[in-house]
């Protein structure tokens, strides 16, 4: 397990990725490693509003000129993310991490990996894509969004996927880019046409993850889902982010997840 630490980090860069999403790089005071799927809890301000930290999946860890920076992709949805969007370069924040588990990245029997990202669910899969490309593990990346302008960082997704000899498949709900419809539909069409994968790794909105769990069950495909339960503490003590497992246990997704094999989750995830 990679040791978690509560670090004073500085905003090193921020770039808009879409009308609602942005990328933020946080320079850490010491080298740090993380595995795709892990997350960090960011204190977005120093007052009581917001009171709690916000959980963000790690999109990558870069080391340039001796400086380590943790990359996050954030969708502005409330006070915490709005504060991050307004934070000036150089602003000091606190980052507790890396937390939680990660995706299984080893190659498997039966084909390449299928990486499936919906909307702001992209960060752990972009991280996974770049790590897999570096290791020479084959994968296809399925990237979905509501509309063309919300397909995040397509160029970087394409570069990582092509480096690994895989395909980037895009889909939008409104058909404004890529295939029309949901991204799990694009995956389903390929599975039905005979495309085989060793494992699917996915992160995105709940309906997408449920659709993927159903698809995985129907096609006998192993799937790992990164869940986005609202988290209070991120370290397993508040029990706010519990997820029900197939064996009936309620486990904190911050500690036993956020990545769960679809088969371990309660039946409602794949119904």
């Amino acid at each position: 397990m990679i040791a978690r630490r509560d670090l004073a980090v500085r905003v090193a860069a921020r770039t808009d990725l879409s009308p609602t999403c942005f990328r933020i790089a946080l320079a850490t005071p010491e080298p740090l490693t993380a595995t795709p799927g892990q997350f960090g809890m960011v204190a977005c301000g120093d007052g009581f509003d917001p009171l709690l930290r916000r959980a963000f999946s790690i999109a990558g860890v870069a080391r340039r000129a001796g400086i380590t920076s943790v990359e996050l992709m954030v969708k502005e949805v409330g006070r915490g993310s709005a504060l991050l969007r307004r934070a000036c370069v150089g602003t000091e924040l606190r980052l507790l991490g890396p937390l939680g588990n990660g995706f299984t990245l080893s190659p498997g029997d039966g084909g390449p990996l299928a990486l499936v990202a919906g909307g702001i669910g992209l960060p752990p899969l972009l991280f996974a894509a770049e790590v897999l490309a570096g290791q020479g593990v084959a994968f296809d990346l399925y990237l979905g969004a509501a509309t063309a302008s919300e397909l995040l960082d397509v160029e970087r997704c394409r570069a990582a996927t092509e480096a690994a000899g895989g395909k980037l498949v895009c889909a939008t709900d409104d058909g404004s880019a890529g295939e029309a419809g949901v991204i799990t539909g694009a995956l389903e069409r390929r599975l039905t046409a005979g495309r085989r994968y060793a494992r699917a790794l996915a992160c995105g909105p709940d309906p997408m993850l449920r659709a993927l769990a159903r698809l995985a069950r129907a096609h006998g495909l192993d799937a790992e889902l990164s869940l986005e339960e609202p988290m209070g503490c991120g370290v397993g003590v508040c029990l706010g982010c519990v997820v029900e497992l197939a064996d009936g246990r309620m486990v904190p997704s911050c500690k036993e997840g956020p990545v769960f094999p679809a088969a371990r989750l309660a039946a409602r995830w794949s119904q």
């Binding site: 009581f48 917001p50 009171l51 339960e229 209070g232 508040c238 029990l239 982010c241 519990v242 309620m250």
Partner: peptide, 14 residues
């Protein structure tokens, strides 16, 4: 087992 989710919500300073 505890209660169903959502179990927590942030409010002003609490």
């Amino acid at each position: 087992p505890g209660n169903p989710t959502p179990r927590i919500v942030e409010t002003a300073a609490g």
